[in-house]
Structure formats: C-alpha cells, structure tokens
Design a protein around this nucleic acid. Sequence first.
DNA 1: ACGGCTCACATTGTCAACAATCGACTGTCT
DNA 2: AGACAGTCGATTGTTGACAATGTGAGCCGT
Lengths: 238, 238
Amino acid sequence: MADGAKGKTAGSVLARVPKATFRAHIADGLRAAILNGDIEPGAQLVETVLADQFGVSRGPLREAMRQLIDEGLLIAVPYTGTHVVGLSVDDVREIYSMRVTLEIFAFEQIWARRDQSFRQGLVARLDALTACIDAEDDAASIVAELQLHGFVYEATGHKLLIRTWDSIRGRLQLYWAAHHRAHGIRGPRRDGHDRYVAMALSDDFDALKSEITDHMARGGRQTEEFLRGREARAVQGS
Amino acid sequence: MADGAKGKTAGSVLARVPKATFRAHIADGLRAAILNGDIEPGAQLVETVLADQFGVSRGPLREAMRQLIDEGLLIAVPYTGTHVVGLSVDDVREIYSMRVTLEIFAFEQIWARRDQSFRQGLVARLDALTACIDAEDDAASIVAELQLHGFVYEATGHKLLIRTWDSIRGRLQLYWAAHHRAHGIRGPRRDGHDRYVAMALSDDFDALKSEITDHMARGGRQTEEFLRGREARAVQGS
DNA sequence: ACGGCTCACATTGTCAACAATCGACTGTCT
DNA sequence: AGACAGTCGATTGTTGACAATGTGAGCCGT
C-alpha cells in the first residue's frame, strides 16, 4: 500500500533496536533461565518473586508467563500456582514422532525448490554445528542443531509449519539441556548430521525419509534412556 | 463452599463446573464473536471498548486477547492496535496442506489400536454431522465436521498432536464461518464424509491416505475459490 | 488417637489510575 | 506549493493496591 520506500539504506542489519515492550524481554529471560537449568523442571514459579527479580510489575510478568505456558514450558492451575513443566518419557516420544512427520512434510514442501541459497544455508549450519561439536561446546551444539533443523522449516516459507516447529522447539531444547547438564556430552556424533545433510541435498527423497526416521529414532532413544535413568535415580533417591 | 460432596455421583460428566477465572470465559466469548462474524475479519479491537462490553477490567481482557493471539485469530502490533486476522488464500493453502499431513499421522498413530469405542465414536459423529447437513443447519454442520475430525486427533491420545490441531481449528473455523455467511450452504456433501469414515474403518491404509488427500484437496479448493471471489469483489468494491 | 472443622497464610485473579508510544493533523518555513 | 517540525488524540503498556481462592496447620470433638 503505497509504501513509497525511496531510500531506507540497508534496512536489514539495523532493524533491531530494542523495540520496547517488557513482555517479550521478560519472556526471553525466563525462557533462557528455564532452558539453562537455572530453574529446574517441576519447580514452582511465584509471580511476585519473579516480578521483583526482573524489576517489573506483575502485569507484564504475568503476560510473559502466559506466553511460556502457550509454548508448553510452564503449567498453571488457577489460584494455586505455576510450575515449570516436568520431564516425561511420553512427551519425548510424542515430540520425536511428531518431528519425523513434520520434517518429512517440510522437505516435501521444499524438495523441488531447493536452490543454491538453500544448499549453502544448510551446509553453513552444518559447519557451524560441526564446529561446536569439535569444540566440545555442548550448549552451543544444542543451539546449532536446533538452528540446522529450524533452517529447513524456515526455508519452506510455510508459516503455519514454522509456528508449529516453534511450539515444539522449546520443549525439545528443555530435554536436551537437561540431558546435557546430567551427562555432559549429549549430541549425536558428527557423522549423523553429515548423512542427514547429504541426503537433504541428494535427489533420493525416499532415502531422506528413512534417514530422517532413523535420525529421530536415534535421538529419541537416546533422550528416552536418559530420562529413564533419571526416573530410576529419582525413585532411588526419594 | 466445602461442598464435601462425598458422593459426587459419576465424576466424569460433571467435571465441568464453571471453574471460575474470567480470562477463559472472556476468551470463549470473544472467540465465539469472531467465529460468529459479529466481529468481522480485519476489524480492530480496542481493549477499553471490549473491557466495558464484557463488564470487566482491561487486565483479564488483555490476557484473553493474548490467548486468541496465540490461537492465531488476532494480530497485535505494540502500542498501535489489535486486529482480527484477515482472510488470505495462502493461509488456506497452508492449513489444508498441514491437515493432510497431520491427519495421516493421526491415523498412523491409531491404526492398529482402532477398537470398538473408536469405531462407534467415529460413526456417532458422522451421524451427527449428517443430521446437521440434512437439517441444513450450516453453523451446526461446521461444528459437527470439526468434531468429527477432532475425534480422530483425540483418539490418538497424542497430546502434542491434539495441541497442534487445536491451534489450527480456530483458523479453519474462521474460514468456514466466513464462507458460510457469504454463500449459505458450504459444507462438502454427505457422501464425502461417508467415504472418509468408511475408509477410516477399513483395513486399507493407503486408500485412506488418498481419501484424506482428496478430501482435503476438495475442501481446500472450495475455500480458496470462495476467497478469490471475495478478493475480486473487494477490489471491485473499493 | 483419629476425623472433621476453622482459621490464617500464600498465591493468583482483578481492578482503576498513570505513563509511554504511535499516527495523523496542523501550522510554519522555504 | 511542498516538506518538515510540533502537537494532539487515541491506544496500548505498566503499575501498585485490593479481592478471591486454594492450601496447610492447628484445634476441637468424638
């Protein structure tokens, strides 16, 4: 609609001024604290305490919490309390089974449209992930792996799919982060993702499908085993 | 208070006491108003006005609005305004393409576990839908169709999948409701769903898959055409 | 000693007032 | 006449106080 836009020199790089609104800022901070493990799964969150901690009133904090509830990281019961979501084997199974379907769907969407920039982007993110793994930086590896997979979703341009991925990513990161804190090294080995990317750039869609299925099965199994061990320990410790 | 109710005969059916909290109540009311067409797509929502209208303060209303934003029914830009989401052809394409994938996934999950109660539930919802169509009650038909498909998702017990369906259902209902208001009769004919259910109860998974694909293609095309006509009219009218 | 009741505390839900920001209008300068 | 700066109204963002609700401890009666 008549944007006129004459100049606007290089709009892309400097578009990120703080942009205001506490809500988003707080939500980011809280999310980071949860995924970082500063607040552990199952812990109760009290609005007044957090409000003080963030130095804001309860209003914006409330809205931030509600956003995290929608992301599936928090659970609230009225007039009673709000807790960080707990870790459960069932959830992991659901997340990984869903990822298989969604990721294959993503590749269906983009398969015929894979261009140079897609290939380059994918390889770049694989390199970044590999670098993090080689540097043995687990936290960075988790982020890099999420970005590798996230790039595929983004590339489809399918807004609804991206939304859905966003709603899963948080929980996935929560599990990985917990795994990382417990065992140190977590991520799949390098070659796992090498094969994944190779298939993604190949012309054999069926091979990619089974690679995704295997990839997820491996990841899911690994995470499940970690959780089962954790549960066993919890029972023992109680 | 302290109802003490030792008896509580039949705990399952009466679990739904009002349960308090304005937020949910307002969210329901607002959602209904939007889907009903009382507030039309693209319209601006002003917090103060709605707060008066609902007879509550801006606090709870704000949270209800934020919930609808997460459901994809509203769009807010900070300090500026909140609008009901507009109707777009791209969105419809995305929704229907996603539905194909999700619904096939749902049947994959439940295929081997289809028991008597599943079959009965499915048929019951088909009958309900058929009755609404025969009665030419479009509004009820829309709800019934959503419940038919929703039943499949629910039956999987896959919480994440159900969540995802919930996040799509609102938008889908928005489009159908708009279509209904514009053209009166909207829904696919009876036999479309008859075949769908027949396949869902058969033992031929591949046949079901193609039926779902066709089913969605028909629905998507129909909705798309409606939207294109609407856009053309809008351009003409402007 | 056990079950039920009451009461106080902790926490969330709700409200009305205040501040920050955006968009458009208007008046002025070139 | 055109463009820019300043200002005004509208709307959302934020705040602190107050009300409703759920939970657990302690008390009383049996």
